[in-house]
């Protein structure tokens, strides 16, 4: 991927992220967050993670953002917190963020592992077809031989082959979450 494209996508992600943190109006923040997630999804695509990128757009930029906007509309919050800025919290927040960023830059700069580029680690699709061999489904090896990356198939294979139990636990979590939301948002009946 051309470096310029990476910097553009990183700028979109971080710039709109900054807008989320500094925006006064919740609706502006929500829309900026959606734009930031689209930039992040593009970064996922640039890392050859097509399935995760699509899921990011569908779940985050789609479902989660609609939920946020819906709640903002429902609660009808227009003017908020305009009164006084919480100065100690802002100072400590910015300080922590700067410290964390500097620390990560220092760690990344001193690790040889982080200097690997995409050219150093090219995907070897035809090779992989031979190597995973019988362990995978024929549809995956056929795609690999044709020079395509069957991203969603490989994730699905990993999930159902190695993490079947975890997948069921996640399903249970979603069920419990659904029940919890219904219980939480049920209006308590006032005594007659």
């Amino acid at each position: 991927m051309p470096p310029l494209l990476f910097y553009l996508l990183a700028l979109i992600t971080l710039g709109f992220g900054f807008l989320v943190v500094t925006g006064r109006n919740p609706v502006t923040c929500a829309l900026a967050l959606a734009a930031s997630f689209v930039g992040l999804a593009a970064l996922f695509l640039s890392l050859d993670a097509y399935f995760i990128g699509v899921i990011q757009i569908l779940v985050y930029a789609g479902a989660v953002m609609v939920l946020f906007l819906f709640i903002i509309m429902l609660l009808d919050i227009k003017t908020e917190e305009g009164k006084k800025l919480n100065l100690p919290a802002i100072v400590s927040g910015v300080l922590l963020a700067v410290l964390l960023t500097l620390q990560i830059i220092a760690v990344v700069g001193s690790t040889s592992l982080a200097q690997k580029g995409t050219q150093d680690t090219p995907l070897a699709l035809a090779d992989a077809a031979g190597k995973i061999g019988r362990a995978a489904l024929p549809t995956i090896t056929n795609d690999l031989k044709a020079g395509e990356l069957p991203d969603a198939k490989l994730i699905g294979f990993t999930l159902f082959d190695q993490y079947g139990f975890h997948l069921q636990v996640i399903g249970l979590l979603l069920l419990v979450g659904t029940i919890g939301v219904v219980v939480l948002s049920k209006r308590e009946r006032s005594a007659p």
Partner: peptide, 21 residues
């Protein structure tokens, strides 16, 4: 050349932004 470090720094900055927020 874009390296793993570039992605990690972007990830860390996004995390720091969220933390500040």
């Amino acid at each position: 050349m874009i390296t793993l470090g570039h992605y990690l720094v972007v990830s860390g900055m996004l995390f720091a932004l969220g933390l500040a927020g």
